[in-house]
Write a protein that binds this DNA or RNA. Structure first.
Lengths: 247, 247
DNA sequence: CGAGCGATTGAAAAGACTCAACCACCGTGG
DNA sequence: CCACGGTGGTTGAGTCTTTTCAATCGCTCG
């Protein structure tokens, strides 16, 4: 019986190995500039796996052997502070790639990555990536573009952490969650992501209890509604105002 | 007389137009991968200027027409928050280039840059840079490397702002100032940079008064000595401990 | 049913900010 | 030469946000 399960899991893993050429996320990914030959080559080199929710993809301090492409799933990228508390640096979703900073700079990971839900993630070995960078200028331009986006976002968050009160940051975080992961059904439905209060606190950069208190403030102000971990935005405009975002 | 001064200033500006091939900062700069022809070409295209202390090089929101290379000087790169308070994102020194993020991403500047002291800065027009990127793979790899460094640094500061108390962040900031700008004469001399208490606060992400109070704490703990804006590190190890940097 | 984890609430304390006053220094103009 | 105003630095007091610690609750899982 156990053997059977192991085999099944193995099969699932391999079934995950879809074609990059026809991958649903291809139009959004940095691999879109690959030609047919390169793309076919990528198929032969990559290895797709299913990660269960809460599984660690890589850890701060270890060395990258390639990069990860999220076919389907949600991932948190975080650093661990001196007291062991996580700070979530970025959230990722289908179509994003992970671990390219460390791979390219040739250094160890400066963040850890963990799935927020069951995810299908493809691994592409180091050499393949470097070959593409050398051969395909557009690919390295895509990498540069990614980096500039991440950098700009990081600098914005720097400003927020330094200057905005927790209340505003939490409001903004909820808005960003909507931007990133959308809602479950339509406009009047909960955000399509399950985060613990602790994760939320680790995005905002505050204590878990503070998040809980502010969420219940938001609820009494009719900005949001919650049901377990599900958060629904009830008054978008007021939440936007609460977040005090420039312009 | 006034005319004379204007002419003098104009002359100084042109005298500033030194050769990139033999520029003292060339070995440290991203232009080191340029060959002789490209480098000569750069000389013909660039334009060097003297900026007085406190002069703005570019402002958040405006569009880049090229990038800046610091031949000599110190620059603060900062964002302005909703209440008009600055947050210093990064400090730059001789050999650094400025404004490449906005130039490459084709977007407006997301930060402003102002000199902390009189500086000689060269401007290199947009087209020239893009030509190099297209022709010289090593150059774009240098850009990628810069971006990865900046990103890593930004993420580290994110963690610090979110989790560390002001006292630790200020101690770390002083250590970083030493790393970046060194000391005036030797080990037992003040840091080689003049920052107002306000600038210091805008690095650390706190109020000016808090910086002043903590600095005087540090003084009574014999960690540092100050004389006007000059800060001298008296007890490096204890300051390091106070900063609570990991490892 | 009990253990354990995440969520919640309460109370107290700490950290940091704001506001206001005051000081020190510097260059200007009378 | 000195009064003046302006800027940046410093100090004090009070306040508010946020954290910390502790206790409780609810739910799930074995």
């Amino acid at each position: 019986m156990i053997l059977y399960i192991v085999i099944l899991k193995y099969m699932v893993k391999n079934l995950g190995n879809i074609s990059c050429e026809y991958c649903k996320i291809r139009p959004d990914s940095i691999f879109k500039s690959l030609n047919r030959k390169e793309s076919g080559n990528l198929d032969l080199n990559k290895k797709c796996s299913i990660y269960n929710r809460g599984q660690v993809i890589f850890s701060e301090g270890s060395y990258p052997a390639g990069l990860y492409c999220i076919n389907d799933g949600k991932i948190k990228l975080y650093k661990t502070g001196t007291e062991g508390k996580e700070q979530i640096v970025r959230l990722h979703k289908s179509g994003d790639i992970l671990g390219y900073r460390a791979l390219i700079s040739g250094k160890s990971y400066s963040t850890s990555a963990t799935t927020l839900e069951d995810s299908r993630i493809c691994f592409i070995p180091r050499d393949f990536i470097f070959n593409i960078i050398r051969d395909n200028v557009n690919f390295s331009l895509s990498i540069i573009k990614l980096l500039t986006q991440d950098l700009e976002e990081a600098e914005n968050r720097l400003l927020n952490l330094a200057q905005k009160p927790v209340r505003e940051r939490l409001a903004e975080a909820i808005l960003i969650l909507k931007e990133t992961y959308g809602t479950e059904k339509g406009d009047n439905s909960p955000l399509n992501v399950n985060l613990s209060r602790e994760d939320l606190a680790n995005i905002v950069g505050t204590a878990t209890e503070t998040v809980i208190r502010l969420l219940s403030d938001f609820k009494s102000e009719k900005l949001i509604a919650t049901k377990g971990r599900k958060i629904e935005i009830l008054n978008y405009n007021l939440l936007l105002k609460t977040s005090n975002i420039a312009d």
